[in-house]
Write a protein that binds this DNA or RNA. Structure first.
Lengths: 240, 240
DNA sequence: CGCTTTATTGAGAGATATCAATACTTGTGG
DNA sequence: CCACAAGTATTGATATCTCTCAATAAAGCG
């Protein structure tokens, strides 16, 4: 199956602004040059376009160059669960490394571009370059940790705390990407937020309103500005 | 810090009955011999003894030789969430590979023994033995997939379905370990089950009773026999 | 601009939690 | 080996959070 959108070939890892977040992080520049040979291709996705589907044979990892994606898992009976949101510099496709097939759908939340890292080539290289292997392990481990914290959130916390933690997490990631004054945009719909948090969109809406009325945040559609970050942390009960 | 319990040195991976489940699975026997040199030590744990704690520096992986453990994560505010139950042949400690510290507590549910795999030595070996690297990837990937399915369960399913899926999952693993007639023992308390499933022990109790009255299972304390496995699958809405 | 999608708001219902009491196990020490 | 204590599980009554259903409002898109 060909990619729905066209591939482009351009910027090298060694010249990419995202090095700090992405695979190159913590690698020697000599090692990053090796990556250049791998991540040659990129895909552009429009909103709602699918990068890969649950069940597809896993042959690549991807790193988000710009934009935002979500991953979600679903079962026959129709249920589906949003598992994560993925911003510039983040690696996706790791859910395929156990079974050789992706376990999730990855879908663009807005116009996005991702770098394609052919996995068998990557493996070969990693086998020869310990630093790369190590970096891969860190990235996988990060995802594992994240999922485990997410499990705590879904299993043990009331909706209010889940939402507070979610906002704080996005804030942190937005800040790392240059956002200031705790102001950023939600790239996902209320439905996606709700699914991610294990609550309904109505509950999301009501909680957002409550936070807003409590003076914790200011909301206008999908724009948010955190007013009282201490208050939010308190509400969240700390986790991060 | 020394291990609370004493270490023992004995059986080699190449001679272990568990090879089929454990690390050796799918490895050439020559490669398994290499593992022998690594997994030399074992720890015996009594019920409630802690194998490692959240925050401890991660320097080993472990494989369960016999017995059963749980892993759980907790936060300041007291909440804690059981993340998994681990039976013979299963690898634990992977949650530490991202941050170099374990992200969870691992606690014995009954008298258990685990093999210690020093992680730096393991890494060295894996760097030289691609098959081992590959196997490690599979194992990590499996855990990632599992966690993602667990997230769906916690986020999107009603208690009844969560419990049905849980029972079916345990049944499958018990069967793989030699159980017959869909009869096996819960190694964990109702509290642990509840935490794992994101419901209270009272709800667990009531659902178990309901399943029992519906003729799906027979329960006596922590022993269970599945009577109508089709019915359970139906209730679960399929996922596995 | 109108139409479709997305988000908000309200009223009511329901699943699960909480609180409380009882019953059952398990382990320990006499 | 029994008896008691401590931990664990069951059961019931009630409360509550969150969902569901329904209507409205706002935004994004062609």
């Amino acid at each position: 199956m060909l990619w729905p959108p066209s591939k482009t070939i351009q910027i090298k890892c060694s010249e990419c602004m995202l090095g700090h977040f992405c695979f190159p992080a913590q690698l020697d520049s000599s090692d990053v040059l090796l990556l250049d040979a791998l991540a040659k291709e990129r895909v552009h996705l429009k909103r709602d376009e699918v990068l890969y589907r649950q069940g597809d044979v896993m042959n690549s990892l991807f790193s988000v160059r710009f934009g935002a994606l979500k991953t979600e898992i679903s079962i026959q009976s129709g249920q589906h669960q949003v598992l994560g949101f993925h911003l510039a510099g983040e690696i996706i496709g790791l859910d395929g490394i156990g079974e050789d097939r992706y376990q999730t759908n990855a879908i663009a939340l807005e116009d996005s571009e991702v770098c394609i890292i052919p996995f068998d080539e990557f493996e070969d290289l990693a086998q020869r370059v310990p630093a790369l292997q190590h970096q891969f392990r860190r990235i996988v481990g990060k995802e594992l940790s994240q999922d485990k914290r997410h499990l705590l959130s879904l299993g043990s916390l009331p909706a209010e705390r889940k939402l507070a933690l979610f906002i704080l997490n996005l804030d942190q990631r937005a800040k790392a990407r240059g956002a200031v004054n705790h102001e950023f945009e939600f790239k996902m719909s209320r439905a996606d937020m709700g699914s991610f948090l294990g609550i309904t969109i109505e509950t999301v809406s009501r909680l957002v309103k409550r936070f807003s009325e409590a003076g914790l945040i200011q909301i206008k559609q999908r724009s948010i500005k955190i007013i009282d970050i201490g208050g939010l942390h308190e509400l969240a009960g700390e986790l991060n």
